[in-house]
Design a protein around this nucleic acid. Structure first.
Lengths: 108, 108
DNA sequence: ATCTTATATAAGTAGATAATTATTTTATAA
DNA sequence: TTATAAAATAATTATCTACTTATATAAGAT
């Protein structure tokens, strides 16, 4: 386990702002449970594919999630190596996760 | 201690958005340590008094902080009775708090 | 009463944000 | 090579946000 780092206020605020959107927060919660591709997210959220991609990009730019290419799909998941991984886990740990199980319809 | 409540995603997202601003996040961190008045905050942040008041109002509207009137001042502090108090504490607990000690110049 | 101080509210505004549609890139399959 | 599918990017736009200045309210002090 990496050393617990002390976040400065600005960094924390920008992470919280990133998580302070229900779409991204839900995405992070899902990605903490399983790797998923954009098409799965598009199915899950009632929102256009570009809108999903743009949220994913913000999460990726922050380093909170990582991507893995597999065939024609790109799989995203929580980045365990992020210096802010512990913080994110703390924030999301008591959020409900029901209903986000991978449903095997997509990307398999 | 109140029962640990499970936050729904939407509520969590709106709380995180509220905390996802460095001014408000710093305010909450300060108010978790001591009650303070608007004038103290105005001294601390390089920002106009109305700007401070508006941030304080958002925090108050959310129920995260409470106010107490004392003479001509209004003192704000973290609301221990908020249903989201535990969540907020969790979020702010590893943030630095140095330099926010009440400096006795104001509201005494 | 009037003045001062603390704080709130109102109105306006520049910039940020989150969506949309249209287009492009990338990879696989025929 | 062409077609198809997944995902990203670009351009646009409406709405939201966080300030500003100006003004109002509320409490104390003179």
């Amino acid at each position: 386990m990496p050393t617990k780092e002390v976040l400065d206020i600005e960094t924390a605020a920008s992470l919280l702002k990133l998580l302070g959107d229900k779409t991204r927060l839900k995405m992070v919660k899902i990605m903490a449970e399983h790797e998923c591709c954009v098409c799965e997210l598009v199915d899950l959220f009632h929102m256009s594919q570009p809108a999903i991609s743009q949220h994913v990009r913000k999460l990726k730019d922050s380093g909170l999630i990582k991507e893995r290419r597999g065939a024609q799909w790109i799989y995203y998941s929580l980045n365990l190596q992020s210096p802010h991984y512990e913080f994110v886990l703390t924030v999301i740990k008591d959020l409900p996760s029901k209903g986000y199980k991978k449903d095997q319809k997509c990307c398999d």
